[in-house]
Design a binder for these strands. Structure first.
Length: 967
RNA sequence: AGGCGGGUAGCUCAGUGGUAGAGCGUCGGCCUUACAAGCCGGUGGUCGCAGGUUCGAAUCCCGUCCCGCCUACCA
């Protein structure tokens, strides 16, 4: 292994050599020669000393340990890996998930020697912050506009300073340094320049235009929303019917229409019927009298809009306030009358209703219709109500002049990049969704009537009416008329427009900077699937458009974190959990207070416990699980699913795992005095050590493969089983008698191997649980060439240690034998402290030699008094329990009481199990065509299994006979 | 209405053709010099239902029933 301090100069080389199965691997594979300034870039992007080191100081200062429960033992036990300053934040599990997976990838890439750029801290919290501040202002009776833009932004900043939302979440989950303000890209002047540049270029290319269109309007935030920011939910409503009188000159009578929004009738400019509907054939082209405003409403025919089966078969058409009606209006060249003003009140078009709020207007219109004798009844109706996902208010489709991006030409290459495989979306199912969205994409409304965000770089000349779109912060003079009354467009850009430029906007674009050349395109993007359209698809479009190639080779979409019952977390349901409460611990009153603020505590608690059944047994609150445990848990879920039902119990089990790591290392440390760990694996002669190294190699391989395939669940389970199930449960136990023995060679083997395996295990686990591994690594023997921080050490791959099939096979036999003795002991209720005699018999001399050589291990782990290894066939000792493991006859001599019935029952159970296996194997082997058609190795394996199982069966007969003798 | 997932042990989930796995839970035994937040052992599943392909199906195909999510919506 090379010097971990040294990074390869060319990331591409490293990427190619370590990638498996040709998958575009980790790192930032970028074109061009290595750059002299790389180390500086790295220091800026990923400085370890500002990340972890400060936590060590905290640990040492505060001794965050809990005592053992043993009365005579006051040694410390690791409990809390991540002490943190107390900052309030508004954040949710999705943030923690994203931070964790991003950081795992970044650390792995870094440890594999790639020059990883990792920039957390995009600012999508900006809009939400603004809404909060607006709410505060409204409470104080001040409007945003009274305050002015500058003062308003000051307040937004002040609020973010104290409750940084997502930024704080990242700091806390990752342990980032506190300079988060700089990471809010909205405020970075370089980024702002990039945003303006993109806008200007798109405008001059004809891909941005300004037009009057029907858009979704948020009457509370007083801004336009893109259709992605609108969420529809089914709610109860009514279908209200009323009659339009037919004009006298057209024969009189009436035409009944149905509507869920009666107030919009003030904007009606037609009533449509189906051309083939005989009921209304006589009314085609006739005029209706509008009851409240001075306007005739024509009857038109339209086969697209009208479903004759629904309602009355006649549809009122309000082109300015309904998307279908808008299209109908364009088809029939109808006038479009906007009846609302910006806060949802009726404007002058509302006639006598002008000034009324839209919901009051609904009542008033209904009442007025009833008074006019035009009301024709109502019925209950389920309908989808579109609400703003920012403010929750019902959004109003409105006619408005806005800026749009023409998406068709941008979407095509973005689609092609995924189709051709240049960019892979993982899990692959999302590719279809991406395709579907990209092929049906609508033009994107990018202007917002907010103040937080990048302002639109467009200026209007009041004098001559010219429009200037240029990349400038200010524009004073009109080039056309020399007028000095230029006014900048008051709107800002959709946050997602700014965000779409992130892969290159953060790297100094449009300048040709070293960073840009180095880090565009990036290798991986990690994010939740819920922003595939918001952000990912748009980064793809903009990246390809401006940089000529897609911004990422892999797009990894992680699942949504939901509650224990599988429901989406939402404030309405009261099942939101703040990840900090899991990290630092919190009583349920606090947790519930955040989940459902402002509702009765008892009610909120009831709902919370329903969403998290496992908390019923948890006492007063969540323990402090620590960041490491939370991170490991996040990674332990499969990335192939769509939902992660968050289970606090599972986090708890991983806290125990962290504790195990701590204790195992604590146990080992005294034995490792004077041990050296090199860049190469040690070469012990002892079998158990060779076995351990081989298992380490397998764990490293599984971890690497899991990470490469974005299967962190497979990586973590492999490491969990290796460390706990093999290293702790077997290897440490096997080392104990060696350390306490007097064989110096064996001791040296054990010391070198244990030191090496621990050091490499910490490296393997570090990306997932950086804090505890770093802490312990600093105390363990490690290579002289080690960097200052574990996150700079080289990530082990399968070559970390030699494979040794002989040792693995042999230790498997030993483990099986030990297991068999333990089972007998346990079932015969032999006290764990008591010793027993054990006789192991096998016909094969080599097998006997193995058992003999490992007698120390067997004797220690089985608590034997005397261990005899002998050939089969001789007289068996009386009063022994016979069992079989790995073909070895295992005789456990039980002095004293022997319960014949229990022994007979145990043997009978074994026999039943074995016979079931034999039957299954025989059935398989005798099945028609199996031996002819199945692959030879499958057949051979089945035959071997059958032979082994039948041998076992024969021995169990003898065991039954022995048991019978006892009676 | 369309699209996409999911239904495997009491619970939460792995497992894409070769005798069903993990964690938690549960039961029994243990404070054995790192760890009782631990150790040792046991228990537990006709893989939603019904067909088909195959020597062989949790796994592939067809149908069907539930449960989620997304998209579009009837004025």
């Amino acid at each position: 292994m090379s010097d971990p301090k040294a990074l390869p100069d060319d990331a591409r080389t490293a990427a190619a050599s370590s990638s498996s199965a040709g998958a575009p691997s980790a790192g930032a594979p970028s074109a061009g020669a290595p750059l002299a300034g790389d180390e500086d870039l790295l220091a800026k992007a990923f400085a370890p000393e500002t990340i972890e080191r400060k936590w060590y100081a905290f640990w040492e200062e505060h001794e965050v340990f809990a005592p053992s429960t043993r009365a005579d033992d006051d040694r410390p036990t690791y409990v809390l890996p991540m002490p943190l300053p107390n900052v309030t934040g508004s954040l949710h599990m999705g943030h923690a998930m994203m931070c964790t997976l991003e950081d795992v990838l970044a650390r792995v890439h870094r440890m594999r020697g790639f020059n990883t750029l990792y920039q957390p801290g995009t600012d999508h919290a900006g809009i939400a912050t603004q809404v909060v501040v607006e709410r505060q202002l409204r409470r104080d009776g001040v409007s945003r506009h009274d305050l002015g833009r500058e003062a308003f932004l000051e307040r937004v900043w002040a609020w973010k300073e104290t409750s940084g939302g997502r930024i704080v979440a990242q700091q806390k989950v990752l342990g980032l340094s506190a300079d988060w303000k700089r990471s809010v890209f909205t405020m970075d002047p370089g980024y702002a320049r990039a945003v303006r540049e993109a806008f200007v270029r798109l405008y001059h290319e004809g891909l941005i235009y300004r037009a009057e269109r029907l858009i979704y309007w948020d009457c509370q935030a007083k801004t336009v929303l893109s259709n992605l920011e609108v969420e529809s939910e089914e709610e109860n409503g009514e279908l209200f019917e009323f009659a339009y009188p037919v004009a006298e000159e057209d024969g009189g009578g009436e035409l009944v229409v149905a509507t869920t929004r009666p107030e919009t009738m003030l904007g009606d400019t037609a009533v449509a019927v189906h051309p083939d509907d005989p009921r209304y054939a006589h009314l085609h082209g006739k005029k209706l009298k509008h009851p409240f405003v001075d306007r005739d409403v024509p009857v038109i025919t339209d086969a697209i809009l009208v479903d004759p089966e629904f309602g009355t078969g006649a549809v009122k058409v309000t082109p300015a306030h309904d998307f279908n009606d808008f299209e109908t209006g364009r088809r029939h060249d109808l006038p479009m009358i906007n009846i609302f003003d910006a806060d949802g009140r009726l404007n002058h078009e509302g006639g006598r209703f002008a000034g009324l709020d839209r919901f009051e207007a609904r009542k008033a219109v209904k009442k007025a219709l009833a008074e006019a004798g035009l009301s024709r009844g109502r019925k209950n109706h389920r309908l989808m109500i579109p609400r703003s996902d920012r403010t929750g208010t019902v959004v109003e489709p409105m006619l408005s002049k806005q800026w749009f991006v023409k998406t068709g030409p941008l979407a095509e290459p973005a689609l092609e990049a995924v189709r051709s495989g240049r960019t892979r979306i993982i899990p692959e199912e999302w590719t279809k969704t991406y395709e579907h969205w990209m092929t049906n994409i609508l033009d994107w409304c990018i202007s917002r009537q907010l103040w937080w965000g990048h302002r639109i770089p467009a200026w209007y000349c009041d004098n001559c009416g010219d429009v200037y779109v240029v990349n400038a912060e200010h524009l004073e003079e009109c080039e056309n008329c020399g007028g000095r009354d230029l006014k900048q467009d008051p709107d800002v850009l959709d946050t997602w427009f700014s965000s779409a430029l992130w892969p290159f906007g953060t790297q100094g674009w449009p300048d040709d900077t070293p960073e840009l050349r180095r880090f565009y395109p990036a290798s991986d993007l990690e994010t939740g699937y819920d922003i595939l359209f918001f952000w990912v698809a748009r980064m793809m479009m903009m990246g390809i458009h401006f940089m000529g190639q897609p911004p990422f080779s892999r797009i990894l979409l992680h699942p949504l974190v939901v509650d224990e019952t599988g429901d989406k977390m939402s404030k309405v349901k009261g099942n939101v959990i703040d990840p900090l409460d899991l990290i630092e611990g919190a009583d349920f009153d606090t947790v519930v207070g955040k989940a459902l603020p402002g509702s009765p505590p008892a009610e909120a608690m009831k709902r919370f416990k329903k969403s998290y059944p496992s908390t019923a047994k948890m006492g007063q609150g969540f323990d402090a699980y620590g960041t490491d445990a939370l991170r490991w848990t996040m990674c332990s879920y499969s990335t192939l699913t769509k939902r992660i039902p968050l289970s606090p119990k599972r986090i708890e089990s991983h806290r125990f795992f962290c504790n195990k790591i701590w204790n195992a290392t604590r146990f080992a440390l005294p034995y490792l005095e004077g041990a050296t760990v090199g860049d190469e694996a040690p070469r012990p002669t002892g079998r158990v050590h060779r076995w351990m190294l081989a298992r380490l190699s397998r764990a490293a391989e599984a971890a690497g493969a899991g990470i490469d395939a974005f299967r962190f669940d497979e990586a973590t389970i492999a490491l969990y089983r290796f460390f706990w199930g093999e290293l702790c449960d077997w290897y440490l136990e096997l080392c104990k008698p060696i350390f306490n023995g007097d064989d110096d060679d064996a001791r040296a083997d054990a010391r070198a191997t244990l030191a090496y395996c621990l050091e490499r295990s910490l490296r393997l686990m570090h990306p997932f649980i950086p804090f505890i591994t770093e802490e312990l690594w600093q105390r363990l023997p490690r290579p002289a060439s080690s960097p200052v921080s574990l996150c700079l050490a080289r990530y082990p791959d399968a070559a970390v240690a030699p494979r040794d099939l002989d040792a693995e096979g042999a230790i498997d036999v030993v483990r099986e034998v030990i297991g068999a003795v333990r089972t007998v002991r346990s079932e015969r209720e032999v006290h764990p402290g008591a010793t027993v005699d054990v006789v192991l018999r096998h016909e094969d001399g080599a097998r006997r030699a193995l058992l003999d050589e490992e007698r120390l291990a067997i004797a220690t782990l089985c608590k034997t008094d005397g261990l005899t290894v002998e050939p089969t066939g001789g007289q068996r000792p009386a009063g022994a329990a016979l069992t079989v493991a790995a073909g070895v006859e295992v005789l456990v001599l039980l002095r004293g009481v022997v319960d014949a019935d229990k022994e007979a029952a145990r043997v009978a159970r074994e026999i039943a199990k074995t016979e079931k296996n034999i039957a299954a194997l025989q059935k398989k082997l005798s099945a028609k065509g199996f031996t002819e058609r199945a692959p030879a190795e499958v057949v051979a394996e089945a035959k071997a299994q059958l032979a082994a199982t039948e041998a076992r069966r024969a021995l169990l007969d003898e065991a039954a006979a022995l048991a019978a003798e006892l009676a």
